[in-house]
Computed example of a mutant assay.
Amino acid sequence: MSARWKSIVVTVLLAAVASGAGAWAGVNWTAKRHEPASLHEIVHRRLDLTAEQTNRIDAIEEDFAVRRAPLEAQLRQANRRLAAAIAANEGNSAEVQASVDEFHDAMGALQKATIAHAFEMRGVLGPDQARAFDAAVADALLQDSR
């Protein structure tokens, strides 16, 4: 292979590697930039909690994990029933609509429990922490609407 062809091959390979690395970095940067903070991250990493607050919030989180598990199971079951109803019916039947309603009820119950959990944790915070918490939660909720 001549020196000219070697130079062309090396240039093409370097361009491919550079474009792949650039694409990977861009995707990762965009994903991290748009990923809202979790409630756990907001409370434990962004607020300066006292040891007592940390203990109380840890207990609240453990309690919520126990309450959340059956709500998530109910949501998964409703989703399976919805999938079965769609597979068994042609079109938007009464059975499909009933399954959609069941799914929405399960999703709503989980969302209400999650909001109650957030307010329960907020009750442990001091006034300045609560303001920071509210702002971070509002920002996280608004991420999807941007």
Results as ranks from 00 to 15, higher is better:
134 D>Q: 02
109 A>Q: 12
70 P>A: 01
52 E>C: 04
16 A>D: 05
9 V>N: 10
33 R>M: 02
142 L>V: 03
142 L>K: 03
12 V>I: 15
111 Q>H: 13
127 P>K: 03
27 V>F: 08
49 L>A: 09
12 V>M: 09
99 S>A: 15
82 L>A: 06
69 A>T: 07
133 F>A: 01
37 A>E: 08
140 A>N: 03
87 A>F: 00
66 V>Y: 05
79 N>T: 14
123 G>D: 08
46 R>E: 14
100 V>T: 00
146 R>S: 03
141 L>Q: 05
16 A>M: 14
15 A>S: 13
2 S>T: 15
116 A>M: 10
101 D>S: 09
79 N>S: 14
37 A>Q: 10
24 W>T: 08
17 V>D: 09
146 R>A: 01
125 L>N: 04
82 L>W: 05
20 G>E: 09
80 R>E: 15
31 A>Q: 12
115 I>R: 13
59 A>G: 03
65 A>Y: 06
8 I>F: 14
110 L>C: 04
32 K>D: 06
67 R>M: 06
12 V>L: 13
19 S>M: 14
125 L>K: 06
54 T>H: 13
22 G>S: 07
103 F>Y: 12
56 R>L: 12
115 I>M: 11
145 S>M: 10
98 A>Y: 01
50 T>P: 05
79 N>P: 02
87 A>M: 01
128 D>M: 02
134 D>K: 00
135 A>F: 04
131 R>E: 07
54 T>Q: 14
6 K>F: 11
66 V>I: 11
119 F>R: 10
117 H>W: 07
2 S>A: 11
122 R>L: 08
23 A>C: 11
10 V>D: 06
69 A>W: 02
76 R>E: 12
106 A>K: 07
24 W>D: 05
83 A>H: 10
67 R>Q: 11
65 A>H: 11
20 G>L: 10
13 L>C: 12
56 R>N: 12
116 A>I: 08
78 A>T: 03
50 T>S: 15
47 L>R: 06
88 A>T: 00
121 M>F: 03
143 Q>Y: 04
101 D>I: 02
23 A>Y: 15
1 M>W: 11
50 T>L: 07
41 E>G: 07
108 G>I: 07
25 A>E: 08
117 H>V: 06
44 H>M: 12
38 S>A: 15
78 A>G: 07
16 A>N: 10
12 V>C: 08
136 A>F: 02
23 A>D: 05
52 E>M: 08
115 I>D: 13
87 A>L: 06
14 L>R: 01
139 D>M: 01
38 S>N: 11
46 R>D: 14
114 T>D: 11
68 R>D: 07
119 F>C: 00
103 F>K: 14
141 L>M: 13
69 A>E: 13
29 W>D: 09
70 P>S: 05
40 H>W: 12
85 A>L: 09
7 S>F: 14
123 G>L: 07
36 P>H: 11
130 A>N: 04
118 A>G: 06
69 A>N: 05
84 A>K: 12
96 V>P: 04
145 S>N: 05
35 E>A: 11
71 L>C: 06
140 A>Q: 02
132 A>S: 06
42 I>G: 05
1 M>H: 12
122 R>V: 00
116 A>E: 15
37 A>I: 03
19 S>T: 15
